[in-house]
């Protein structure tokens, strides 16, 4: 943790600088790629809709608990929101890797920007379209019997944001660690992403799974995030799952930033 604090202290010494300002500056630069090429955003909005539209009816058929499509959506939609967050933020490193390769990353490293702002700004950029995506699929689901609880969704998105910054920072560190071979980034990202998603009970409930799967899901921070999102999207604040979710998000965020900032300051490009 000392590296984070050290660099925060040094940036504070220059009067007009603040870590928040730096985060905003990094985020702004990253977001320009979306603004200058809005088609990519439109495309990314369609993707989760397709997923929801094709997957949820199947799940409704399998589950068939007699409560109808609305209840399936209630279970499945928070999972999709978590999934797109994981997809998006775990790719933070892929965009970074391109800029490591071309040299832009080194140029930005040589600026006085706070090191943690480099990570957080990039992760937040990946989260930006996700917020829009999450809101759109939620609104689309409403006519199909999905209960809308706006205040709860806002809290749910905040938890996802904190969690996503952690995942983004880890992805960032992975990109630096694998900068010499691009495929290694994808190999690690993919082989971690899917087990984590499945073992969180995001797509299918784990209650019916074998014991070892349930045991693994207990140590998967994503499980607590998914549980918290389900409770929140269902319109409940007063549940221990929300607290566990907040803790899991904060732990992931702190661990991700610690690993990320260490990797940035220790690595030789």
């Amino acid at each position: 943790m000392s590296t984070i604090l050290d660099s925060a202290a040094t940036s504070a010494r220059i009067a007009h600088r603040s870590v928040l300002g730096d985060i905003k500056a990094v985020w702004t630069r990253e977001t320009l790629t979306i603004l200058r090429d809005p088609f990519s955003l439109v495309f990314s909005l369609i993707q989760p809709l397709v997923f929801l539209g094709l997957f949820a009816p199947l799940l409704a058929g399998v589950a068939d608990d007699g409560l109808g499509f609305g209840s399936t959506l209630q279970f499945f939609l928070p999972g999709v929101v978590v999934m797109i967050t994981m997809f998006g933020t775990s790719m933070t490193g892929a965009n970074l890797q391109f800029e490591i390769m071309t040299g832009a990353f080194e140029r930005i490293l040589a600026t006085p920007l706070a090191r943690q702002a480099l990570l957080i700004g990039r992760a937040l950029k990946e989260l930006t379209p996700l917020v829009v995506q999450a809101l759109i699929i939620t609104l689309v689901a409403v006519p199909f019997g999905f209960d809308l609880h706006p205040a709860h969704i806002v809290v749910g998105l905040l938890i996802l944001g904190v969690f996503g910054v952690g995942v983004g920072a880890l992805s960032y560190a992975l990109a630096i660690a694998t900068r010499k071979n691009e495929w290694a980034f994808w190999a690690v990202q993919q082989s971690l992403l899917f087990p984590l998603l499945i073992l969180s009970g995001m797509m299918l409930p784990l209650e019916t799974g074998p014991d070892w799967m349930q045991a693994l899901s207990k140590v998967n921070p994503l499980t607590y995030i998914v549980d918290a999102e389900r409770v929140l999207f269902a319109g409940t604040f007063d549940d221990s799952a929300v607290v566990y979710g907040i803790v899991a998000a904060m732990v992931t965020c702190a661990a991700g930033l610690w690993v990320g900032v260490r990797t940035v300051t220790k690595s030789i490009l």
């Binding site: 790629t33 200058r36 391109f98 071309t102 040299g103 832009a104 080194e106 040589a110």
Partner: peptide, 16 residues
Amino acid sequence: YIGQKDGAGHNYRVWD
């Protein structure tokens, strides 16, 4: 500091 590789991001506009 001007490094060995391209400092400007390839996906960006010059002015930005």
